[in-house]
Every structure is written in structure tokens, then in C-alpha cells.
């Protein structure tokens, strides 16, 4: 805009320079994925060629077939989707319902309670995993979906995000509803939820992606292969077939593609979600 003052030549040179940097950067940023996908299509001997070749000479589906026949990856996917899906739904419910209480209802100790909840966010889960494990064990939930999901039914970040969003909803709207005799639950359901749809969907994707990616908890809490998540399955798979590069790459591609598709699909929501958290820090 302001560059109009400058000469056109300088301007276009700048633009070219800028786009060169951007294109190179973008290529570096996605190259590992391209490499992963292309390698996954190579027959095994081709992976050991030197110098390495980018394109497969004789592309094959065999690696993908092998992964599903050698290991029950379809089962891992089911587990991962149950694990991440149910966790996400409960996180959405707890975050939005409690977020409404924290944003719009005044009660004694509210800010302190909120602060304590939020403060738990700063420790990584691994640091207090043992007491949680002992609890899950006491409940008899080792190697069950309940046990897998329990630690992730709440998310402080989600609570924070939902409180921030709901705070920005004008009080007048809520008051009007109250005057009309709506119960708090109806306000929550008919007013708050529809109005915070943007944040909810952003949180949904954020929660899904982060729960899907948890590794250490499934590692300790599952005891049989039929309860593995894809993360765990891939780690064990790679351990078992570590010299079969193309196969490992196909495994990596298969496990990461669902998330990439999810991202491409909901791109805007994800970016909005990050935007929201960043803005109101």
C-alpha cells in the first residue's frame, strides 16, 4: 500500500525476493510430508539407493497393504477415534458448561477456583501420571476405554477458551433471557452454545488433535494390542520393523493422514481457534 510511493522496479524486486523466501520456506516446511508419502510408495530396495531418489521408480501399494495385514491398524484407528472422539465431546461439554458459570455467574471464590483450575495446566501430565494410574487401577479400568479417556475429560485450556468467549457475549442478551423466565440450563443450551459455536468447533479440533496425539498414557494404561491407539501402534510397529523403511513410512503416512485431512477440512476453524486464544491472553 505505502509502497506505491517507491519505484515500481524496487517494488517488484522486493516482491520476487519475498516470494522466493516464502516458497523455499514453504517447501522446507512440507518436504518431510512429501518425502514420507513418496517413500511409502517405494518398494523396499529403492529406499536404500544412494543418492536418494525423490520419486519412486516403480510405485507400489504393497506397503500400505502390508501394514494392514501385518498389524491390526484398523483396530488402532477405531481405538484412537473412540479415545479422541469421546474425550473431545466431554471436554466440549465440561468446558462450555463450566465456562458459562465462570464467565457469567458471580459466586464467592469464583476467580480463585478458576485460577486453580487454570494453574493445573502448567504441569505436563507425565509429572503426575502415577497417582492417576493408581486411581484408574483402583477403579479396575486398566486396559479399558474408560481408563484411557478419564484423564482427558477436562481440559484447562478449553475451559479458559470457553470462558473468554462467553465473557464477550453481552450481558443484556442473557439478562433478557432470564427476564423471559429461561432457566440457566436453557440459556446455556439455547443462547450460549449457539453463540459460541466458533470457539466450540475450534476447541473441538484442538482437543481432538491433542488427545489423538497422547502417547505416554496409552502406553501405560493399555495392556493388550487390541487397545492400542495409532500412536502407540505405530511406535511398536516401527520398533518391530525398524529396518523396513518404506513400511515404516507407509505406517507414518497412514497414521498422520487422517489428521492432515481433518486440518485441511477445518482449516479456518483451527486458525480461528488459535487466534482466539492468542488475542485474549
Amino acid at each position: 500500500m505505502m509502497n506505491r510511493r517507491n519505484t515500481r522496479a524496487v517494488n517488484s524486486a522486493g516482491v520476487i525476493c519475498k516470494h522466493t523466501i516464502l516458497v523455499v520456506g514453504a517447501l522446507i516446511s512440507i518436504f518431510p510430508f512429501i518425502w514420507m508419502v513418496l517413500t511409502a510408495f517405494k518398494p523396499e530396495p529403492e529406499t536404500l539407493l544412494w543418492p536418494p531418489r525423490v520419486l519412486p521408480m516403480e510405485p507400489t501399494w504393497q506397503n500400505f497393504i502390508n501394514i494392514f495385514t501385518r498389524w491390526p491398524f484398523h483396530r488402532f484407528f477405531l481405538n484412537s477415534f473412540i479415545f479422541a472422539g469421546v474425550s473431545t465431546l466431554t471436554i466440549l461439554l465440561t468446558s462450555s458448561a463450566a465456562g458459562y458459570a465462570f464467565a457469567k455467574i458471580r459466586f464467592w471464590g469464583r476467580d480463585l477456583l478458576f485460577f486453580i483450575f487454570l494453574a493445573t495446566m502448567i504441569l505436563p501430565f507425565e509429572t503426575y501420571m502415577i497417582p492417576v494410574y493408581l486411581l484408574v487401577n483402583k477403579l479396575g479400568w486398566i486396559n479399558t476405554y474408560q481408563g484411557l479417556i478419564l484423564p482427558f475429560v477436562i481440559m484447562s485450556f478449553g475451559l479458559f477458551l470457553m470462558r473468554q468467549t462467553i465473557q464477550s457475549i453481552p450481558d443484556e442478551l442473557i439478562d433478557a433471557a432470564r427476564v423471559d423466565g429461561c432457566s440457566e440450563f436453557r440459556i446455556y443450551r439455547d443462547l450460549i452454545l449457539p453463540l459460541s459455536k466458533g470457539s466450540l468447533s475450534a476447541l473441538a479440533i484442538y482437543a481432538f488433535v491433542s488427545v489423538y496425539g497422547f502417547f505416554t498414557w496409552p502406553l501405560v494404561v493399555t495392556t493388550t494390542q487390541d487397545m492400542y491407539t495409532t500412536e502407540l501402534g505405530l511406535a511398536m510397529f516401527q520398533k518391530a520393523f525398524f529396518t523396513e523403511y518404506a513400511l515404516s513410512m507407509a505406517g507414518a503416512a497412514v497414521t498422520s493422514l487422517p489428521l492432515i485431512f481433518l486440518f485441511l477440512f477445518f482449516q479456518r476453524n483451527i486458525i480461528t481457534g488459535i487466534t482466539l486464544t492468542g488475542l485474549k491472553g
Binding site: 512440507i30 510430508f33 500412536e231 507414518a252 498422520s256 481433518l262
Partner: peptide, 11 residues
């Protein structure tokens, strides 16, 4: 540029 943020760590 955002793409690397998406997939999980093991793959």
C-alpha cells in the same frame, strides 16, 4: 507453514 503443526509426534 501450518501443516507441520498438525500431525502427531510418532509419525
Amino acid at each position: 507453514f501450518f501443516l507441520p503443526v498438525v500431525p502427531t509426534l510418532v509419525p
